[in-house]
Nucleic acid binder design. Sequence first.
DNA 1: TTTCTACTTTGTAATGATTACAATATAATT
DNA 2: AATTATATTGTAATCATTACAAAGTAGAAA
Lengths: 138, 138
Amino acid sequence: MKKSLDELIKELKEKNIRLTHQRLKVLEYLVNNRTHPTVDQIYKALKKEVPSLSKTTIYNTLNYLSELKLIKVVAIEDNEARFDGDTGDHGHFKCNSCGKIYDLDMDMDKCIPENLNGFRIDEKIVHFKGICKRCLSR
Amino acid sequence: MKKSLDELIKELKEKNIRLTHQRLKVLEYLVNNRTHPTVDQIYKALKKEVPSLSKTTIYNTLNYLSELKLIKVVAIEDNEARFDGDTGDHGHFKCNSCGKIYDLDMDMDKCIPENLNGFRIDEKIVHFKGICKRCLSR
DNA sequence: TTTCTACTTTGTAATGATTACAATATAATT
DNA sequence: AATTATATTGTAATCATTACAAAGTAGAAA
């Protein structure tokens, strides 16, 4: 589900969403930076290219795009949100040593317990935290 | 792993943690209210019994108790933390209609993907969101 | 029991992420 | 090029959480 920028633009057009410079830049950033960036990281990076950019725009844009299901919020930190251009089902691992957030290709449906029979599941979140292999081997 | 208040007090004594009135009240509240309360809910409830209580104390106490692994933070809302007296491995389901947070008895180790071989896992978080059975049948 | 001291609680102020809002600007249609 | 609904921008507000210093207290020692 790692959509290209072109695919994302196509989806915007289909939904009659205006292709503003700022929206395209945010999408482009998320497509090119698969690092689960924070609002501030996105803002600082794009501010260089778009000097007029406002942080409120980043918030508005990210909120709107996630409402449209074009991106996902990753709530793995307790103080600030991170964003992911990959909207397919997958989990995350956060290394508490280097801070890196790994993507985990996995079948999240296997995690659904029987207790939830009869429940409608709209969102599945699987996060792990610890120390990654790379950091352990030092 | 639903410890009684007595078991929790015993653990505090073993670790030479002072048994302050406020700490005992917070633990008692979490043992008696398995609803994953917020800081504000705990504060407002205990303020009635302990009029001198400060919200900072609730924060200090909850942070300290979770460092000691006597309670757990449940980060299932995006704006505020919730707390759980049950420190055993289990998942959560949040109903977006009634707001209730259900506990899910499940084997979370079955969710660990192979990608994480060689990683040290300290924390496992499994959350689902949607509409619960009760709300659906209306 | 009283004293002592390190640890805890309390209240206020600060922080930091996020949102509200109104003025200005712009995408896309006519 | 004109129009208009929608988006961007900057500033101020909100709200959960933390920092900090003064006052209070649990628990050990005398």
